[in-house]
Simulated scan of single mutants.
Amino acid sequence: MQLDRIHISLSDQQLVGYAEGQVVCRYAVSTALNGAGEAEGSGCTPRGRHRIRARIGEGQPCGAVFIGRRPTGEVWSPELAATFPQRDWILSRILWLCGEEPGFNRGGDVDSQRRYIYIHGTGDDQPMGRPLSHGCVRMRNTEMVELFARTPVGCIVQIDA
Rank of each mutant, 00 (worst) to 15 (best):
D109W: 03
D109L: 04
D109I: 02
D109E: 14
D109V: 02
D109G: 01
D109H: 10
D109N: 06
D109Q: 07
V110H: 09
V110W: 04
D111V: 08
D111S: 04
D111R: 00
D111Y: 02
S112Q: 06
S112Y: 13
S112N: 12
S112F: 12
S112A: 15
S112W: 12
S112V: 14
S112G: 13
S112M: 14
S112K: 03
Q113H: 14
Q113S: 10
Q113K: 05
Q113C: 14
R114Y: 00
R114I: 01
R114E: 13
R114L: 11
R115K: 09
R115Y: 07
R115M: 09
R115V: 00
R115Q: 11
R115S: 09
R115P: 10
Y116S: 09
Y116N: 07
Y116T: 04
I117V: 13
I117Q: 05
I117S: 02
Y118A: 12
Y118M: 07
Y118R: 12
I119Y: 15
I119M: 06
I119A: 05
I119E: 15
I119P: 07
I119H: 07
H120D: 00
H120W: 05
H120A: 07
G121N: 11
G121E: 06
T122I: 04
T122V: 14
G123R: 07
G123A: 08
G123P: 00
D124C: 09
D124L: 03
D124N: 06
D124Q: 15
D124S: 01
D125V: 10
D125S: 07
D125I: 03
D125N: 14
D125M: 09
Q126I: 08
Q126E: 11
Q126K: 01
Q126A: 12
P127M: 04
P127C: 02
P127Y: 08
P127K: 02
M128H: 10
M128C: 05
G129K: 00
G129A: 12
G129M: 01
R130E: 15
R130F: 12
R130Q: 13
P131R: 14
P131S: 14
P131H: 15
P131V: 15
P131A: 15
L132V: 07
L132E: 03
L132F: 00
L132I: 10
L132N: 04
L132R: 00
L132G: 06
S133L: 06
S133V: 03
S133N: 01
S133C: 03
H134P: 02
H134Y: 15
H134T: 03
H134S: 14
H134D: 08
G135P: 03
C136P: 02
C136L: 14
C136G: 05
C136Y: 01
V137D: 02
V137L: 05
V137G: 02
V137I: 13
R138K: 10
R138V: 04
M139E: 01
M139C: 05
R140V: 10
R140L: 05
R140H: 11
R140K: 13
N141D: 11
N141Q: 15
N141A: 06
N141S: 14
